[in-house]
Amino acid sequence: MYDFIQGYYAYLFLATLFVIGLWGMMTKCNLMKKIMSMSVVQSTTILFWIVSAYKDDARVTVLDKSLGVDNPDIYLNPLPHTLMLTAIVVAVVTLGVSYALIINIYREYNTLDEPTLLERMK
């Protein structure tokens, strides 16, 4: 059990974080809190890619003349990191659009609390 936790603690942490995010999106009434939970879910996904790309004793993917390019084990795979840069941009844009939408909702109904909102929509 202890070995399991020690071996996988990053993944256990991420799984917890993912579930917290989903739980927040489902149960929180305030739209702002929903956005925060959504952001947690997105960040977890990004972190998952980054954590999985980790290699013991590997270095940044910059060519070191003294080490050469023959042994791929000493370099990290650069692909996940670059992909996640794109994913971060997507996450930022999602936040932007969601803020625009809730600003619109607030102007219309003067509240961000979902039950009150549904009350005023009738």
Binding site: L22, M38, V41, T45, F48, A87, T94, S98, I102, I105
Partner: peptide, 27 residues
């Protein structure tokens, strides 16, 4: 109309969750 923002917001949260699931599966 004036209800569209809330409907779009709900679609956004669910759609983003869907995209996150896709990205996680892809990992």
């Amino acid at each position: 109309n004036r209800r569209a923002s809330l409907a779009a917001f709900r679609y956004l949260t669910l759609g983003t969750a869907g995209a996150s699931f896709y990205l996680l599966g892809l990992a």
